[in-house]
Amino acid sequence: MQRICLFPGSFDPITKGHVDIINRSIALFDKLVIGVGVNSGKQPMFQPEQRVEWIREIFKDDARIEVAAYEGLTVNFCKKINARFILRGVRYVSDFEYEKAIADMNRMLEPGLETVFLTSSPEFSTVSSTLVRDVIRNGGNVNMFIPEEVKW
């Protein structure tokens, strides 16, 4: 059976921290699907199509990586793509507590679905999409935090 993993997130925008987690995780799975979550309750800075396009460009040379936007429960999207694993990056202990609660809920909703946590590399532990958006909104330079393919 193929080991398919979903890496869900908003990726608004994708950061070098995300890319690091993806690059370090791909050896663990046969296929990694990067799921750009669309939450109708949130107003993103960048449209889902733009985020998907950036991620496809970044990973265009790796056939093991696919990208798709999705709405609704992550466990339902996992079923749709036959993923048995969810990948989550963890920067701090507070991230782990939040992510574990989600992982437990997902496992209750879909027994057999496992969440794999990777800790961020030290140089990316302070980088988040939220902080990057704040810097962008205030006219700062975010080039050190985002992949060169991310342009708007």
Rank of each mutant, 00 (worst) to 15 (best):
I102A: 08
A27C: 15
G89N: 03
N76S: 14
R107K: 02
L6N: 07
A83Q: 02
F77E: 03
D104R: 11
D62S: 08
P44L: 09
F77C: 03
L32H: 12
I21W: 02
V93M: 12
V52Y: 10
I102E: 02
R107V: 00
F85V: 00
D30E: 14
K60Y: 10
I22N: 07
F29P: 02
M108E: 13
N39T: 08
R24A: 09
N76R: 15
V67Y: 06
T15P: 07
F7P: 02
Y98T: 04
I14N: 05
A103Q: 00
K60S: 15
I21R: 12
R51F: 09
F29Q: 07
L87A: 03
G9I: 06
D12E: 10
P48V: 11
L73D: 09
I14Q: 05
L28F: 15
Q47G: 14
V36F: 06
M108L: 10
M108H: 09
I4T: 12
T15Q: 08
I26G: 10
L28R: 08
P13R: 15
V67K: 12
V33M: 11
A63Q: 14
D104P: 00
V36E: 11
F96M: 13
A103Y: 00
R107Y: 00
G72W: 14
G89V: 07
N82D: 12
G9H: 00
R56W: 11
A101F: 01
A101P: 00
F11V: 12
A63S: 15
S25G: 13
L73Q: 03
S40G: 13
A69C: 12
K60L: 06
D20K: 11
F11D: 11
E66D: 15
L73C: 00
E53L: 12
G37D: 05
K16W: 03
K80H: 03
I26Y: 06
W54D: 13
R88T: 01
S40F: 13
H18M: 07
L6G: 06
I34R: 08
A68D: 13
R107I: 02
G72E: 08
I102K: 01
V93N: 08
F46P: 09
I58N: 14
V75C: 01
L87S: 06
P13W: 06
E49N: 12
T74V: 07
E97D: 08
V52S: 11
L87F: 06
E49G: 11
R51V: 05
F7M: 00
D30I: 10
L73N: 03
K16H: 10
G35E: 02
A69W: 09
A101H: 01
E71T: 15
F96I: 12
P13F: 10
F77M: 02
I22A: 12
V33P: 05
I22V: 15
E97A: 00
L73I: 03
D20I: 06
A63R: 10
